[in-house]
């Protein structure tokens, strides 16, 4: 195993190191760069606690090698906190606080980045779209209720109205993942 030099832009700052090819991006961020917000909660690409943006798209950094991120740009939750590093001005983190979208905080950095990625791709979200969009992120504390609200708020939606609409919409009740062919309307 020979070391490989990588250069990865993390939260707008260029970082470089010589790494083992097997080094996971999550560990690169935590150990080599020293950004500890990104957590690792499983070893099967299931929980999403390690979610970061890679060139603007959400990925699970436990299932990306640091060498695969060479020459690319990574954004972690720390990257949403502004120059000072303590700003809550970002709409996603602000909404998580306002809606009590976190408890123990372990899933939070990944959840925040998954929401940021989701909104970047399509801000026109309803409750069902948020829930399905977060299918790759597990939380044990919140029951997701307030995370979903936070995502809706961050996307500029009224969470009360969105939740009421979902509760009233019988058609959307078919279990997610059950059918992409029949239950989700045109184009699904």
């Amino acid at each position: 195993m020979t070391g490989v030099k990588v250069e990865i832009t993390v939260n707008g700052r260029s970082t470089t190191d010589e790494v083992e090819p097997r080094l996971l991006l999550a560990h690169y961020l935590r150990e080599n760069v020293g950004l500890k917000a990104t957590n690792i909660g499983c070893d099967t690409t299931s929980c999403g606690a390690c979610t970061v943006l890679l060139d603007g798209e959400s990925v699970k950094s436990c299932t990306v090698l640091a060498v695969q991120a060479d020459q690319l740009a990574v954004t972690t939750m720390e990257g949403l906190a502004g120059e000072s590093g303590d700003s809550l001005d970002h709409p996603v983190t602000a909404a998580f606080r306002q809606e009590h979208g976190l408890q123990c905080g372990f899933c939070t950095p990944g959840m925040v980045m998954a929401v940021a990625g989701l909104i970047a791709e399509n801000p026109d979200l309803d409750e069902r779209a948020v829930r399905e969009g977060l299918e790759g992120n597990l939380c044990r504390c919140t029951g997701y209720h307030n995370i979903v609200r936070a995502a809706l708020v961050a996307a500029g939606k009224d969470p009360d109205a969105a939740q009421a609409a979902e509760a009233e919409s019988d058609a959307a009740r078919t279990a997610p993942g059950f059918s992409a062919g029949s239950s989700e309307g045109a184009g699904a």
Binding site: A37, L80, G85, D86, L88, T93, F106
Partner: peptide, 12 residues
């Protein structure tokens, strides 16, 4: 608790 949890993250 949240400002730290939502910026640099909690410290586990």
């Amino acid at each position: 608790e949240d400002p730290v949890f939502l910026t640099r993250g909690a410290t586990y």
